[in-house]
Simulated assay, not measured.
Amino acid sequence: MRLTRRRNLPDGLTLGRGERVLAVSGDTVATDAALHFQDGAAFTRLPWERVEQAAWRDGVLAVREVGGGRHSVHLSEPGSVPETVRERVTATVVVSTHVKLPGGGGVRIAARRPAKGSGDPRWTLVFDSGLDPSDPGLLAQAEQAMEEIRRQTGL
């Protein structure tokens, strides 16, 4: 991956200490720690472990956050940003599995490690469409399945 010099960064973007630039496209910057993009008048910093899914199509990088937030980032000259996003998001995934729940339907259980490699993995539960994640019984089943996966993997 080619590193990009900080002088090519968009005006108003501040990176964290030690954060290395990997790819730049206009007002969108991919670093070793996060995706930075213009969101109105300010920049949004989205750490890689918070990106559940990203897709590149027709000049738009569609990003879905863990927990449901969605962003559409238009890249007129994408350069290596889409490939860098894919590589960085994939690199954070430690475990990702779909578990069927006793009452029907299922849940995707994932563990993602922070991009800089320090810290414990962050676990997430993403329920199948039509399931209510606020249902205490359903949540208990999913958490029990997550604990079993944690035991099996030693995470």
Rank of each mutant, 00 (worst) to 15 (best):
R122D: 04
L3H: 13
A42H: 06
R7C: 00
T124H: 15
H36V: 08
H98P: 02
E77S: 10
S134E: 14
A62G: 00
M1W: 00
P47Q: 11
P121R: 05
M146I: 00
W48Q: 02
V107I: 04
L9Q: 06
G59A: 07
R122N: 04
P102Y: 01
T84F: 00
D135V: 07
D135T: 05
R7E: 12
E87N: 10
I149Q: 05
G130T: 06
I149C: 03
G105W: 04
R45S: 09
L75T: 10
S96R: 15
E143Q: 15
V60M: 02
P121M: 02
A62S: 13
R5H: 12
L138K: 01
V63D: 11
R88K: 13
R17A: 14
Q141I: 00
Q141D: 15
V60L: 04
G119F: 05
P47V: 13
G154P: 06
V51Q: 07
L139M: 07
E77M: 01
V107Y: 03
W123N: 03
L13S: 05
E65K: 12
P114M: 08
G26A: 11
G18N: 10
R88S: 15
G79R: 02
T28W: 08
H74C: 00
A23F: 02
S80N: 10
E148Y: 09
T97D: 03
T153D: 00
V21T: 13
V126T: 15
S134W: 02
R70D: 06
N8E: 13
A110H: 01
D39Y: 06
G154A: 06
T4Y: 02
T97R: 14
R64T: 15
I109E: 08
V107G: 08
V81P: 06
A62K: 03
L61N: 08
P78G: 08
R113M: 14
S80E: 13
P102E: 03
V63Q: 11
P47A: 14
R150T: 03
P121T: 07
R151G: 01
G104A: 12
D32Y: 02
V89A: 12
T4L: 09
R7W: 11
P10W: 04
T31E: 09
W48C: 02
P78Q: 04
S129E: 14
V81F: 08
S134T: 15
V21H: 10
A115Q: 04
G59Q: 10
L13I: 03
A91P: 01
S76T: 12
V51G: 09
L131G: 10
G68S: 11
L155S: 12
V85Y: 05
L125M: 13
V85E: 05
L131I: 06
P78C: 06
A41N: 11
P114R: 11
R70N: 09
A33V: 04
T4E: 13
P133F: 07
T28M: 10
G12C: 06
P47W: 10
